[in-house]
């Protein structure tokens, strides 16, 4: 995992209540293809560690959540893991930030974090 992703994940971890026992990681597979992510809506729980397993089906894509300062390149032919632990309920949009063609501007999805 790239240092930036580790750092971003750690930033998220800082928000988790220290007193809570950390539950096991949940794995969520996300597929990226021009010009959408599947699933397009991911529901997570606050305090629940998650590993997002990102796969590009056709070409280089990106995964960027500006609000959480988390981003990663999604290269074809490999799984890119992004670890995070949501600290705050809310809706966080992510989008492709590697230009991928005529529908690039619409390639976005969301993570919904619930308490």
């Amino acid at each position: 995992m790239k240092p930036a992703i580790i750092a971003a994940a750690l930033l998220c971890l800082l928000g988790v209540a220290a007193s809570a026992a950390i539950p096991p990681e949940r794995h969520v597979a996300i597929k990226a293809t021009r010009f959408f992510y599947s699933p397009a809506r991911i529901v997570l729980k606050t305090g629940q560690p998650v590993v997002l397993e990102l796969t590009a089906l056709d070409r280089l894509h990106g995964f960027d959540i500006p609000e959480l300062h988390i981003r990663a390149d999604i290269l074809p032919g490999q799984v890119t893991e992004v670890r995070l632990t949501p600290a705050k309920a809310g809706t966080y949009e992510f989008h492709c930030d590697n230009f991928c063609g005529s529908g690039h501007e619409t390639m976005a999805a969301k993570i919904v974090v619930e308490d």
């Binding site: 990106g62 390149d73 930030d97 590697n98 230009f99």
Partner: peptide
């Protein structure tokens, strides 16, 4: 300045 040839901006 070119900030577009790299697809990552």
């Amino acid at each position: 300045l070119d900030n577009v040839s790299d697809p990552g901006g």
